[in-house]
Simulated scan of single mutants.
Amino acid sequence: MKGTEVWIKVEGTRTDETGERETIVFETQGRLYRRGEAYYLFYQESELAGMEGTTTTLKLEPGRVTLNRMGSVSQKQVFEEGKVDRGEYTTPFGRMPCEVRPSRVEVSLTANGGHINLEYELLLAYQSLGFQVLRITIREAR
């Protein structure tokens, strides 16, 4: 697989029902390539996110992001504004139903990078984990 080698900055902020906020930021290298109208972004998850040994693939289309994780954690979710997506989150400890309720899905990319903004409510095992904001910035590695 070819494509562009890129630097990826992932910034995730979770706000729970009490208003408490937690932010995780990590940077990693990955690959970005285009097939048809969609871009694909591949990267390895970090220990910081609790998903070491997991490869994340994002299929990026205007107004739609498909997340696919494989490895120590597996998950497939589709983010589209106003559409609830139900999936499954699998860890070494078992499987749980996972649901996303996106309120904002923005994808702005070229072959050299760009950004993705996702805002959504996340439910795991039917319990809300609060409101999530995920910002991913992609730039060509030099």
Rank of each mutant, 00 (worst) to 15 (best):
K2L: 10
G3K: 06
T4C: 05
T4I: 09
W7N: 14
K9C: 11
V10D: 00
E11M: 03
G12W: 04
R14L: 09
R14H: 12
T15C: 06
D16H: 09
E17A: 10
T18H: 08
E20I: 12
R21V: 09
R21P: 05
T28C: 03
L32P: 13
G36H: 11
G36N: 08
E37M: 07
Y40V: 07
F42R: 03
F42I: 11
Q44V: 05
Q44W: 06
E45D: 06
S46N: 02
S46Y: 10
L48R: 06
L48S: 02
A49M: 12
G50C: 05
E52Y: 14
E52D: 15
G53P: 04
T54E: 11
T57W: 04
T57M: 10
K59P: 02
L60Y: 07
V65I: 09
V65F: 00
L67Y: 08
N68Y: 14
V73C: 09
Q77V: 01
E81G: 03
V84S: 05
P92E: 06
F93Y: 15
M96F: 15
M96L: 12
C98T: 10
P102G: 08
S103Y: 01
S103L: 01
R104D: 13
E106Q: 01
V107C: 01
S108C: 12
S108D: 15
T110E: 06
T110C: 11
T110H: 05
G114V: 05
N117V: 14
L122N: 05
A125K: 04
Y126P: 07
L129T: 04
G130N: 03
G130W: 11
L134W: 00
I138C: 02
R139I: 12
E140Y: 08
E140T: 13
A141W: 14
